[in-house]
Design a protein around this nucleic acid. Structure first.
Lengths: 331, 331
DNA sequence: GGCTTTTACGAAAACGTTATAGGGAAAAAC
DNA sequence: GTTTTTCCCTATAACGTTTTCGTAAAAGCC
């Protein structure tokens, strides 16, 4: 910039202001400056700029996993916004590891970023690190999908309860007398909402709920297979599945295939998933899918609004987007 | 830091050096400093630090797409390395848009990062922006998978030629008399290598190659369906498919299903894909899959080595990893 | 014309680090 | 006993911006 100033016969302050499009600078000077900027492809040093301004145009995204269509789509949505607003996006993966999540948050307390989008890892304890992060930095935080239900932060979620209710009703109306819910052992707000929807649907449809109708699966695909196979080998086996997690729908299919249970005749299945190949499975899988891309977009939009203080009210916003039920051949 | 220095009765320089573990500082002082650092959870301001040191611990990843198992896995691999080395990772998506790719590169000339990992978007012209980026910044660049074959940069690729050769041979040995290659209209180094492997395998196996045996598909899934359906409706239709791009395998399945062509009896299929659901398709899809996670790991490892100048020789490294052929029921 | 206000620019300080050069005391070397 | 070396530490100047404040000239006002 000193170079530019010298060549233009101006001071660095003037050049800086011209680049920043300050009203203090005349149109003619701005034009002269910008021309030279273009000529030399000059780019202000972001570190110097951020240091002086005490903030930058960088945000971070913390998610459990990227090898998962839902999160990949969400990141896609986030990036589409940050790109258009000229923000840079850091990405951090926790792999469902709470310690890792805490470590990333602590690292970010250094002030590297101006805002943060998070989908928390499994487990419903230990939300305190988010609160601490906020106290320490006062930076805007936006949660999406996997949100800490007990904390007061802006969130982007889906209508898990209602859509799970609807999906379960569809299973029952399609003829399932004993539909089970496959969920995770890990406590999560989203799964609890889905479970509530499932149970309320049963009640509404006059089906008696028993504890065995909730099947708890894990992160271990092999183990899940064993668990499901055992349950579906029983004489009084379930005749419907609401798989509330993507991968459990896949395992269900595997088990049914191996046990020669015909979908949808013997077992009706609806899976909560964003898999693009759902329509190509045999039979094509009925899905309850989340508007992942839009969730990312909304979260990023909200965050940037908060960063740029265009909307102070945003702080307690909770944006609810609808899940989409797509009925295919599996029910 | 001034605060810390005051409280310890030391100068800021001493504190800075103690934190930086400089040999100029005695062990006892270091201990005192680090204790207070811990107590106050002090984190050096990265902008100030980067500004003064003229470099930082941030790198960028530029890829065409994240909603694609291959790239998601690669990012996972990259992040696993950057995380352990305490680097921060920016992510940028080009969506196969060359202009976007150029814009990101130009943006990064500001000096925000210390290194760059790229998988280029389709099209084999216009590699000059990479060269220009390098000239302007002298920053280390590592390419993976989609590499600019004409440029001298370190690369992480797979044995596309050999593995495509092998896959084609397997198709033929499984009984296909007229296997076709489905590839993209967009020129890319990887597809060209795959095509070479395919053609050489045909020749080796004594099958006469004709131009119609290369089927060009696009980014438009609807159009691809139409193209494939037309070809497979002909009386003299192909009896084997080597789908060299993930999504084309899916469309192939759809077309076969709709035309009531039985896989593998009527048509044998091998798809180049990292889809986790390949085994669940009907019939299960034989795949040639890329070691995406490892490619990401290698690329990030190489980049960080170059950044930290531990290995000057890295600059012209080309790391070749093997693709994996998994034969399932589709051939 | 004398007054205030506005416009357009520059000087200098600040942002929070790290690197360079330097210095004083203690230890080592002769 | 003097010189040299080593060990710790400090003062100060960067790094490249932005911002605050000051000011001269131009413009507006009666």
């Amino acid at each position: 910039m000193i170079q530019l100033a010298k060549e233009l016969g101006l001071s660095v302050s003037t050049v800086s202001k011209a680049i920043g499009d300050s009203h203090e600078i005349s149109a003619s000077t701005k034009k002269r400056v910008l021309e030279l900027v273009k000529k030399y492809k000059y780019k202000p040093n972001p570190f110097a700029s951020n240091l002086r301004k005490k903030k930058g145009k960088q945000i971070a995204v913390i998610i459990p996993d990227i090898v998962n269509n839902f999160f990949a789509l969400a990141v896609d949505g986030i990036e589409s916004v940050t790109m258009s607003k000229h923000y840079d996006t850091f990405i951090y993966l926790t792999h469902e590891n709470l310690e890792r999540e805490k470590a990333v948050l602590e690292h970010l307390e250094s002030g590297l970023i101006s805002g943060l989008i998070i989908s928390v890892c499994t487990g419903r304890e230990g939300y305190s690190h988010f609160q601490e992060f906020y106290e320490a930095t006062k930076l805007p935080l936006v949660f999406f999908d996997r949100v800490p239900d007990l904390l007061q932060f802006p969130k982007v979620i889906t209508n898990n309860y209602e859509s799970s209710f609807d999906a379960t009703v569809r299973l029952i109306k399609a003829g399932s007398k004993r539909p089970v819910l496959i969920t995770t052992t890990e406590p999560m707000f989203t799964s609890m909402e889905r479970r509530r929807g499932y149970q309320d649907a049963l009640e509404k449809q006059g089906i008696v709920f028993t504890d065995e109708m909730i099947i708890h699966c894990t992160d271990d695909m092999e183990l899940n297979y064993t668990i499901l196979r055992k349950i579906f080998s029983q004489k009084k086996r379930p005749d419907g599945i609401f798989a509330s997690i993507e991968k459990y729908a896949i395992t269900s299919y595997q088990v049914c295939k191996d046990l020669k249970l015909v979908i949808p005749k013997d077992v009706k299945v609806i899976g909560m998933t964003n898999l693009r190949t759902a329509a190509l499975l045999n039979p094509s899988l009925s899905t309850l899918s989340q508007p992942a891309f839009d969730m990312g977009k909304e979260a990023a939009g909200l965050l940037i609004k908060m960063i740029e203080k265009k909307s102070y009210a945003a702080a307690n916003d909770i944006i609810v987007l609808p899940n989409e039920l797509t009925i295919r051949d599996s029910i």
